[in-house]
Simulated scan of single mutants.
Amino acid sequence: MQGPIPWIPVEQEIPSPRLADPAEALRRALAQAPPPPRGPVAVPVGSRHIPGLPDLVAELVAHLREAGADPVVVPAMGTHGGATAEGQARTLAGMGITPEAVGAPVVSRPEVVCLGEAAPGLPVWCDRVAAEARAVVPLHRVKPHTAFRGVLESGPTKLLAVGLGKARSARAVHRYGPAQALPAVLRFWLESGRVPFGVALVPNGRGGVAELRVLEPGSWPREEHELLELSRRLAPRLPWDELDLLVVERIGKDVSGTGMDLHVIGMERRFPGCGATPRIRRIVALELTPASAGNANGVGYADVVTRRLAEHVDWPATYANCRATGFLEAARLPYVAENEDRAVEAALDSLAVEPGEVRAVRIRDTAHLDRFWVSPVLARDLPPGVHRICG
């Protein structure tokens, strides 16, 4: 790999329990699930990358159809996809969620309706297609959120609380306080009797699925919280508390809500003074994932980006996302360099560190930390569990 820094490939040992066949595991779990009602049943699907997502959605659709329901897939991604019906449909298609792949219509419409209040001042907004269905069965992965800590964070509950109501829900939940809003909205949905079950899974750090469960109303909050704690234990991290430079090859909404997972790049980027590690002096981001459809929310947490990345940003979509969350700094445009080498050189110049002395790491993205590259200084004294790749 050419450039200002002579990168050295390494591999990190990370805990990676793995289901051999997630679709088969889902099939077995669904055999014990409560029956859905006959008639239209909405299957909300979000915008995050989930290993084997089309196969899992297809398995859920087949189960619902066999039980006498008429499933329809709807996007549940808040302000993602430019907060438009067309953009959200493109986002799903980009993840392989098409009628042909999942065996059901994929319907994306802009209208939302208010179903009521989960608490005073906390309206529950819902996609009109899902609101008119007999039931809603969400499928989503469970991970720690990048902006708050709570009993429930990113998971099927967040699809119900934020994703289904598009920009309206995103604004309402973030203004109310997500840690308090998510349990309240989940109670609202479960008490309505319109959510017979949900599907939750935990990705591992190597592109597989570690755990998968069907969540039933009586045990849903407890089980989703258990999966959150498992996800927290399995989430890969960089094995250094202090770095001069981190080069991120790609950022995007399919990787993290903030483009780069703040648990990986350092919560100090969003909450200065919080004392969390790692502390990284400079971050360079090289490109935006195609699945982001131009939504570069989180680009403001980088210090330098390439012109290629900057030119692919859809600013209205990015602004819609950051306005809904309230973190306007996430949409700031960093220093723009002409290409990758110039971007790294700009970061090095600002650090006043020679390439041969810089403590630097290069990663594909913040969801893939099993293999990455390090600078020679770090390679001379690798921490336990990190090994050079030979050959």
Score class of each variant (00 low, 15 high):
Arg269Pro: 15
Ser192Glu: 08
Arg232Glu: 12
Arg168Asp: 13
Glu216Ala: 14
Gln180Thr: 13
Gly193Lys: 03
Gly275Cys: 11
Glu229Leu: 15
Arg222Asn: 00
Ser231Asp: 07
Arg232Tyr: 06
Ala170Trp: 10
Ala179Tyr: 00
Val202Ala: 07
Met260Asp: 07
Phe197Thr: 00
Ala170His: 11
Leu212Arg: 01
Ala200Glu: 05
Leu186Glu: 08
Leu227Ile: 05
Pro178Tyr: 05
Arg168Cys: 02
Arg213Lys: 14
Val162Asn: 05
Val209Trp: 06
Ser231Glu: 09
Val185His: 04
His174Asn: 15
Leu212Ile: 05
Val173Ser: 10
Val195Cys: 08
Val264Gln: 09
Glu211Asp: 15
Arg250Asp: 13
Asp254His: 15
Ala235Ile: 00
Pro221Asn: 06
Pro217Cys: 12
Val185Arg: 01
Val173Lys: 05
Pro221Lys: 12
Gly198His: 04
Leu182Thr: 11
Pro272Asn: 00
Ala172Lys: 04
Lys166Arg: 15
Pro203Lys: 12
Val199Lys: 07
Arg270Asn: 05
Gly163Thr: 10
Val162Ala: 06
Thr258Lys: 01
Gly266Ser: 05
Leu245Thr: 13
Met260Ile: 12
Leu228Thr: 04
Leu245Ser: 06
Gly205Arg: 09
Phe271Tyr: 12
Gly165His: 12
Pro203Gln: 12
His225Trp: 12
Ala200Phe: 11
Phe271Cys: 03
Val185Phe: 06
Trp240Gln: 01
Gly275Leu: 07
Glu226Lys: 14
Ser256His: 11
Gly266Glu: 02
Ala184Pro: 02
Phe271Glu: 08
Gly198Trp: 08
Glu224Ile: 05
Arg233Tyr: 04
Pro196Lys: 14
Glu216Asn: 01
Glu223Trp: 15
Gly266Met: 05
Leu243Tyr: 08
Pro217Ala: 14
Glu191Thr: 02
Phe188Glu: 08
Gly252Gln: 03
Leu215Gln: 07
Asp241Gln: 13
Ile251Leu: 13
Leu245Pro: 01
Pro217Leu: 13
Asp241His: 12
Gln180Pro: 00
Lys253Gly: 11
Leu215Val: 01
Trp220Asn: 01
Arg168Glu: 15
Arg222Ser: 02
Ser231His: 10
Gln180Phe: 01
Ala210Asp: 07
Val202Gln: 09
Gly163Cys: 08
Glu191Ser: 13
Ala181His: 03
Asp241Asn: 13
Cys274Ile: 15
Gly208Asn: 05
Pro178Asn: 07
Arg270Lys: 13
Gln180Lys: 12
Pro236Gln: 10
Val255Asn: 03
Ser256Cys: 09
His225Ser: 13
Val173Asp: 12
Gly193Phe: 06
Ala276Asn: 11
Leu182Ala: 07
Glu242Met: 03
Leu234Ile: 01
Arg250His: 14
Gly275Asp: 04
Leu212His: 01
Ala172Val: 00
Leu228Asp: 04
His174Cys: 06
Leu215His: 06
Ser256Gln: 06
Ala235Cys: 03
Leu190His: 06
Arg233Thr: 03
Arg194His: 08
Gly259Gln: 03
Arg270Pro: 13
Leu238Glu: 10
Pro272Leu: 02
Ala181Asp: 11
Phe197Met: 04
Pro272Trp: 01
Ser219Arg: 15
Leu228Trp: 11
Arg171Ile: 01
Ser231Asn: 07
Gly275Trp: 03
